[in-house]
Design a protein around this nucleic acid. Structure first.
Length: 591
DNA sequence: GTTATAATGACTCTACCG
DNA sequence: CGGTAGAGTCATTATAAC
C-alpha cells in the first residue's frame, strides 16, 4: 500500500545534501494563498462602471455571483436565471452568452476568456450588430439564423471566427455550444498533437505511466502506449481530460531528466508578464480543465511536495515560466519524518512505517483523539494486536500525528509546520494571531521549496529584481520563496483579504530588511482596470503575477460546500484570471 | 465577542482480483 | 473489463469554554 512512501527515498536521489537541517537555520519567508472571505461580489467591467452587489433575488446568490464574476452584468444574470430556472447552469450560461453577444459593442471589452486576443475577429463578426447595443428584446436572438447565432457566441467566447465556423460545419447545426467549444478545442489540440505526442512519449517512458481520465464518465484508466491516440480520439469526442502524472513530479525534479523536453506555451500566454497559479491537484472533476482553459490552455504542472520536503502536498500549477535550469533552495529541507524530527525516533513504534506526512491541512487532531489512542495502547501489550495497530495508524495518517512518548502521539506544532513548509521559524507567531489561525494560515499556504524551485528560473532573467503582483498572498509564500532565492523584489503589490495574514507578511517584510516596496491591498475584487493601469504605469509593469486562489470549495476535506470552481470562495479563481488578463492587456498596450 | 474543541462524510483515484 | 476495498484530501459547523 505504501507505494508513495517507498519510492521517495530510494528511487529519487537528487541531491548530495542529506544533512538534517536545524530548524533555526533558515531565515526568511512567508506563504501565500489564503482562504479569503470576500464580501459579496461586486464586479467591475474593465471600462470602469461597477455593478451593485447581488444579494436579493434568486435563492442562490452564489449562482448569481458565479456568473457576475465571469463578467456578466447582474441584471442579465438575474434575467437569465429567471428564464431558465436555477437548475440548469448550462442553459443559463448559454442565455447569458447570447445576451452578451447581442449587446456587445466592439469597443468595450470585459473579462471573458481570451477576450483581448480576439478583438479583431470580433469586430468583423459584430459589425452588422453594432447598433443593437441597447438590448431590450430578448427574442432578438431568434431572429438570427441558428448558425449565425452560435457563430457569434463562439467568437464572443474567444474562438477565432474561422475555427468556430468550421466547427459548426463539422458538428452540425444541432450541436450544443459546449460540444462546439470542445470541438474547436480538440482541433486546436490536434494541431499541436505531434509535439504533444513527442512530449508525452518522453514522459511515459521516464515515468511509470500516465493516468488519463475521462472527465465525464469519471473513469480513470491506465494508459499504455496507445494513450496518446486515445487522448486524441477522446478529445475529439468533445471531452477534455487531464493527466495526473504518476509519480506526481511535474515537469521534472532536480537531477532528473526533464520529462517534458520542450513544452509549448501558446503565443497569447507568453510573458511578460510571467504568471504562476496554484491550487489543489485533487479538485472535483472538470475544475482543472476549466482552470487550464481560462489560463490560455497551458497544461498544469502537477507536483507533490513530498519530493521537496517531509510532507505530501499535491498541487497543480499553471504557469508560463521556463522549466529548464531550475535549482533548489539551500539548504534543502529534510525529506523524511525521521530526519525532520530526530528526537521522536525513540518513541516511533516499528509498525508505524510512515516516512513522510500526508498533506498538512488547516485543522489538527483533538486532544480527545490522542487520549483515545493512548488508552487503547495502554490496554494491550507491546506490540499491540493488528487491529489496534491498524486503527492507530489510520488516525496517525489522517491527522499527521507524531510520537512524543510511550503510547503518546501528538499533532504537529505550528512552528513545526512552518519548518516543513519552508518558512522561517515563528513566521506566523505572535502579533495577535491565535493558535488556530496559525494552523489555518499555514494549511492554506505554499510549500516554499516547491514553489521556489519553479520560480528559480527568474533569477537569471531578472538580475536587477522584479516587480510582483501577488494575489491571495496569504502569509507570503511567494515572497518568501523569491527572497530565499535571492531575487530582489523591487515592488510587491500584495492582495490578501485576511488582516492577520497581511500583518504577518508586512512584519516579515520589515524584519528581512527588504529594500523594495510592499503595497498591501485587501480585496482582489476591488482591483479594477483603472487601479491596475495606474500601478502598471507607476511601476513599469509587472514581471510576475503569482497566486493561489481559495481551494476550500475544491478540497476533498470539505464536507459541506465542495461546490467546485463555482463555489463561494473558489470562484475567486475568475478574479485571478480577470486580473491577469487585464494586466496582460494593459501591458500589451503600453509596453 | 473570541477562541478552542469536537463531530460531521463524500468523492475520487488506486490497486487488486476474478 | 467490471467490481471492490483501501486510502487520502490547502474544511465547515455547532457547541463549549474563555
Amino acid at each position: 500500500m505504501e507505494t508513495w512512501t517507498s519510492d521517495s527515498d530510494q528511487d529519487l536521489e537528487w541531491g548530495s545534501d542529506d544533512e538534517v537541517v536545524d530548524e533555526g537555520t533558515r531565515h526568511s519567508s512567508v506563504p501565500p494563498s489564503g482562504p479569503s472571505q470576500p464580501p459579496v461580489s461586486s464586479h467591475e467591467a474593465i471600462a470602469g462602471q461597477s455593478n451593485k452587489a447581488c444579494e436579493e433575488g434568486p435563492s442562490r446568490p452564489s449562482l448569481v455571483r458565479e456568473f457576475i464574476v465571469m463578467g456578466f452584468k447582474e441584471d442579465m444574470v438575474v434575467k437569465a436565471i429567471q428564464e431558465n430556472g436555477e437548475g440548469d447552469t448550462e442553459a443559463i450560461l448559454e442565455t447569458l452568452l447570447t445576451y452578451k453577444a447581442i449587446e456587445k459593442a466592439p469597443s468595450d471589452h470585459e473579462n471573458s476568456p481570451n477576450d483581448c486576443s480576439l478583438s479583431s475577429d470580433r469586430e468583423n463578426t459584430d459589425e452588422d450588430l453594432c447598433d443593437m447595443d441597447d438590448f431590450e428584446d430578448e427574442e432578438f436572438a431568434e431572429d438570427l439564423s441558428e448558425k449565425d447565432r452560435k457563430l457569434l457566441i463562439l467568437v464572443e467566447m474567444g474562438f477565432p471566427t474561422d475555427k468556430a465556423s468550421s466547427a459548426i460545419d463539422r458538428c452540425g447545426p444541432n450541436a450544443s455550444l459546449l460540444e462546439l467549444a470542445d470541438s474547436i478545442h480538440a482541433a486546436q489540440m490536434a494541431e499541436e498533437s505531434d509535439c504533444h505526442l513527442r512530449e508525452s512519449r518522453i514522459s511515459d517512458s521516464t515515468e511509470e505511466g500516465t493516468y488519463v481520465y475521462d472527465s465525464q464518465r469519471g473513469r480513470k484508466r491506465r494508459s499504455p502506449e496507445e494513450t496518446n491516440y486515445k487522448r486524441k480520439r477522446l478529445l475529439s469526442d468533445s471531452e477534455s481530460m487531464i493527466c495526473l502524472p504518476k509519480p506526481m513530479v511535474g515537469f521534472g525534479l532536480p537531477n532528473q531528466r526533464m520529462t517534458l523536453a520542450n513544452r509549448k506555451i501558446p503565443e497569447a500566454a507568453t510573458g511578460p508578464p510571467y504568471f504562476y497559479y496554484e491550487n489543489v491537484a485533487l479538485a472535483p472533476k472538470g475544475a482543472w480543465e476549466t482552470i487550464s482553459r481560462f489560463l490560455y490552455d497551458i497544461e498544469p504542472e502537477f507536483v507533490d511536495s513530498k519530493y521537496f520536503c517531509a510532507a505530501a502536498r499535491k498541487r497543480g500549477y499553471v504557469h508560463n515560466l521556463p522549466i529548464h535550469n531550475r535549482f533548489l533552495l539551500h539548504p534543502t529541507p529534510p525529506k523524511t519524518i525521521q530526519e525532520a524530527f530526530p528526537v521522536t525516533k525513540k518513541w516511533w513504534p516499528s509498525w508505524d512505517y510512515r516516512r513522510q506526512f500526508n498533506c498538512l491541512q488547516t485543522c489538527v487532531a483533538s486532544a480527545k483523539l490522542t487520549e483515545r489512542i493512548r488508552t487503547e495502547l495502554e490496554k494491550c501489550g507491546d506490540p499491540p494486536p493488528e487491529r489496534i495497530q491498524k486503527y492507530v495508524l489510520e488516525e496517525c495518517r489522517r491527522w499527521n500525528l507524531v510520537w512524543v512518548g510511550r503510547h503518546k502521539v501528538a499533532p504537529l506544532e505550528p512552528d513545526e509546520i512552518e519548518m516543513l513548509l519552508g518558512f522561517p521559524r515563528d513566521h506566523t507567531r505572535g502579533g495577535g494571531i491565535s493558535r488556530m489561525n496559525r494552523y489555518k494560515s499555514l494549511g492554506n499556504s505554499f510549500q516554499v521549496d516547491t514553489v521556489a524551485y519553479h520560480l528559480s528560473v527568474l533569477k537569471d532573467m531578472f538580475p536587477n529584481g522584479i516587480t510582483v503582483l501577488s494575489l491571495f498572498s496569504g502569509i507570503g509564500g511567494a515572497e518568501v520563496a523569491l527572497h530565499q532565492l535571492g531575487i530582489h523584489m523591487k515592488t510587491v503589490v500584495s492582495v490578501e483579504i485576511s488582516d492577520v495574514n497581511r500583518n504577518i507578511l508586512k512584519s516579515w517584510w520589515e524584519q528581512t530588511n527588504q529594500t523594495g516596496e510592499l503595497i498591501d491591498l485587501s480585496d482582489v475584487q476591488e482591483l479594477n482596470g483603472d487601479k491596475l493601469e495606474q500601478m502598471i504605469n507607476t511601476f513599469g509593469g509587472f514581471d510576475l503575477v503569482i497566486g493561489g486562489s481559495p481551494c476550500n470549495n475544491l478540497s476533498g476535506s470539505n464536507r459541506y460546500s465542495r461546490d467546485g470552481l463555482e463555489g463561494k470562495h473558489s470562484s475567486l479563481f475568475y478574479d485571478y484570471f480577470r486580473i491577469l488578463d487585464l494586466v496582460k492587456c494593459i501591458m500589451g498596450k503600453n509596453f
